[in-house]
């Protein structure tokens, strides 16, 4: 059973508190994505799991082994770096074999594993090349094959796709998903790209300035953001947060903000009871639907509506948030259940 348990990990660089008490329990064979904006401490957390940084306080366990103070090589993890870190003075074969050679695996096993992972990553025809003779995408494949070849307990990836161009990234994303689903290795994957996170993850941990705001299934993260921050980070456009002073009906105790996704409104072109009259500021046609920026009592928000509704900027439209989609947030930005 390869679980990862992170308890109260804190890390500062000088005066900067980068990780402020992070706790996370990652389940056996799950693919966890650490998602958050640049600089929120994702890489730092990943490097602490790998042993490349040491936490100031807190405990890291892999399985039931406490690894908090073990050097990287004793943690049985593998890591894929953003810039691939393929050794330039070794052939692709030697790169992939490197970890097994360090573990003094028998030659037969080395050969088998290298060939298996190279075939898996579609680089079996490149085994005798050097990294200088490879494209960025091919180097990426070598880096993943090298990580898989050692059959690690835990696979760690730090924005592995972010240096690829857009098209290649989509293709690699799909391939990675298939490969990792098959390998069933417990994986922690860092990205700032919410689409990547939603598409790859079994479970997403949303990080916000050194804390984990929510750790949950992708659908839960989307439908029930635990904090205003999560709601406004995920979704394109993100969740609307509206002060509910004009909202009729019951407002839960302590709620100061109503969170509602742009697609979760009932729309009417005529005034109706309980519908908000909104003024349309801009309208964008996006093919599958149209997106409106609208205003109500000085509050701005976005709405997605069906193509059939014919409106233009300056018009008034009547909206009612769907009751089962409303989420309420307290003064401190936390969801009220």
């Amino acid at each position: 059973m390869t679980t990862i348990s992170i308890e109260n990990v804190k890390k500062s660089f000088g005066d900067a508190h980068i990780l402020k008490s992070v706790s996370l329990d990652i389940k056996h064979q799950e693919f966890t994505v650490l998602l958050g904006p640049s600089g929120c401490g994702k890489s730092t957390l990943l490097r602490i799991i790998a042993g490349l940084e040491t936490q100031d306080t807190g405990v890291i366990k892999i399985g039931d082994r406490t690894v908090s103070h073990l050097p990287p090589k004793e943690r049985n993890v593998a890591m894929v770096f953003q810039n691939y870190a393929v050794f330039p003075h070794m052939t692709v074969f030697e790169n992939i074999a490197f970890g097994l050679r360090m573990k003094k695996a028998p030659e037969q096993k080395i050969k088998e594993n290298v060939e298996r992972t190279a075939t898996l990553m579609h680089i079996d025809h490149l085994l005798h090349r050097y990294s200088g003779q490879l494209s960025g995408g091919q180097r990426q494949r070598v880096a993943v094959a090298r990580a898989l070849a050692v059959e690690p307990d835990v696979l760690l990836m730090d924005e592995p796709l972010s240096n690829l161009d857009a098209l290649l990234r989509l293709q690699m994303r799909a391939e990675l998903k298939a490969v990792l689903e098959a390998s069933k290795t417990t994986t922690v994957y860092v990205t700032h790209d919410q689409v990547e996170a939603m598409s790859l993850a079994d479970r997403i941990a949303v990080m916000n300035a050194g804390r984990i705001d929510q750790y949950d299934l992708p659908d839960e993260i989307y439908n029930n953001p635990a904090t205003e921050y999560v709601g406004s980070f995920i979704g394109n456009p993100p969740m609307n947060f509206i002060s509910p002073t004009f909202q009729r009906g019951d407002i839960p105790e302590g709620a100061t903000q109503l969170g509602i996704r742009p697609e979760d409104f009932d729309v009417s072109t005529e005034a109706r009871e309980d519908y908000w009259p909104i003024t349309i500021l801009t309208r964008e046609r996006l093919g599958s639907h149209q997106q409106l920026s609208a205003e109500l009592n000085g509050q701005l928000f976005r709405v997605n509506i069906a193509n059939e509704i014919d409106v233009s900027s300056g018009n008034t439209l009547y909206l009612k948030p769907k009751d089962d989609k409303k989420r309420w947030y307290s003064e401190s930005g936390k969801i009220i259940l």
């Binding site: 790998a50 042993g51 490349l52 050097p71 990287p72 090589k73 993890v77 593998a78 890591m79 770096f81 953003q82 810039n83 870190a85 050794f87 330039p88 490197f98 970890g99 360090m102 573990k103 090298r146 050692v150």
Partner: peptide
């Protein structure tokens, strides 16, 4: 690049 060294550490060096 320091990542080359770090990759080697993680791979057992």
């Amino acid at each position: 690049p320091v990542e080359l060294e770090e990759a080697a550490w993680v791979l057992g060096c």
